[in-house]
């Protein structure tokens, strides 16, 4: 790992933002690095409340996060935002533009991440980033993702609460999302409440949710309007209540999933490293191609101990 990481960890725990950013970078690149970092920071971790936010482009996720972060900041809560955007499959590059709408809050830590991580997958990366943030005493962490894809669902698994932001005219074809909608979570934000269609959207949403699951008591719908700043008081109240209730929840299965995933990620990396560093790798690969070598023999002789 990079030299000086211990100094960065020390500075980060002391409140240095640049060091925090550097430590996050180190953890992102490799779950083995991340493991080492965890050793150092674990004693400092204080549980935070992690809020997953997803929804179609244009619905206003970043604006909603801006309003929530602003409110929480004004209540002296320490807030961080992880904004996850897709990397291009072709080039690996990414355009990460979410922080634009949140940039005016200088004491909120905002980090933009591409979902194609060096290894381990985004959920693993995001997990370690939240841990690092917890070591720095961030109390509310927003994780913003787009849509309802596989990686977003996994991210939801590391969140304490998952919220779907919808807005009239922006991917509000709820029917199309029907299958994925209950996967997201049970909190829905109908944004752009100042627009005339928002009420219709809310009604459609309720109908659709009822058709999927009769019991709508556990479903929460909030109407917000970022331009005039309306609707956030009740949402904030709800989030703060939920953050207090977190301690009392039995989330064993959730934690077990995380545990297995992280273990798998580390194992994957170790296996990858081993195979890449086999001395006679080219000969072995030729052997497999020509049919002389049995691929399972290579596996058995190199990775059984895992």
């Amino acid at each position: 790992m990079q030299t000086g990481y211990k100094e960065h960890i020390a500075k980060m725990l002391d409140g240095n933002i640049y060091s925090l950013a550097k430590v996050i970078s180190m953890a992102e690149t490799d779950p083995i690095n991340a493991g080492e970092i965890m050793q150092h920071i674990f004693p400092h971790c204080k549980p935070s409340f992690i809020i997953g936010i997803t929804g179609p482009p244009g619905a206003g996720k970043s604006s909603v996060i801006f309003q929530l972060a602003r409110h929480l900041s004004s209540l002296n809560k320490k807030v961080a935002v992880l904004a996850i955007d897709p990397n291009s499959h072709l080039t690996g590059g990414a355009l990460l533009g979410d922080r634009i709408r949140m940039d005016d809050l200088s004491d909120v830590y905002i980090r933009s991440i591409g979902n194609q991580c060096a290894t381990g997958g985004i959920a693993v990366s995001a997990y370690f980033v939240t841990k690092i943030l917890e070591a720095c005493k961030y109390e509310f962490i927003f994780i913003e993702t787009v849509g309802a894809g596989q990686s977003e669902i996994k991210v939801k698994d590391i969140s304490d609460i998952a919220m779907l932001v919808l807005a009239p005219g922006f991917g509000d074809d709820i029917q199309a999302n029907k299958a994925g909608i209950m996967e997201i979570g049970n909190v829905f934000i109908v944004n752009k409440a100042d627009k005339p269609d928002s009420l219709r959207l809310e009604v459609e949403l309720i109908d659709m949710l009822k058709s999927v699951n009769e019991d709508t008591d556990c479903i929460h719908i909030f109407r917000t309007d970022c331009i005039n700043g309306n609707g956030f008081d009740s949402l904030i109240e709800y989030l703060i209540e939920e953050s207090k209730a977190k301690k009392n929840k039995n989330e064993h299965s959730k934690i077990k999933t995380q545990l297995i995933e992280l273990a798998q990620s580390k194992a994957n990396k170790i296996i990858e490293n081993r195979i890449n560093s086999l001395t006679d790798i080219d000969t072995l690969l030729d052997g497999i191609l020509s049919g002389k070598t049995n691929i399972t023999d290579i596996i058995d002789s190199n990775v059984t101990d895992i």
Partner: peptide
């Protein structure tokens, strides 16, 4: 982005501090 980099755009009217 096409060259494989991760690009973060600040948007308009940013101060040097921001």
């Amino acid at each position: 982005r096409d060259a494989g980099m991760e690009v973060i755009y600040t948007g308009l009217r940013r101060t040097p501090q921001q």
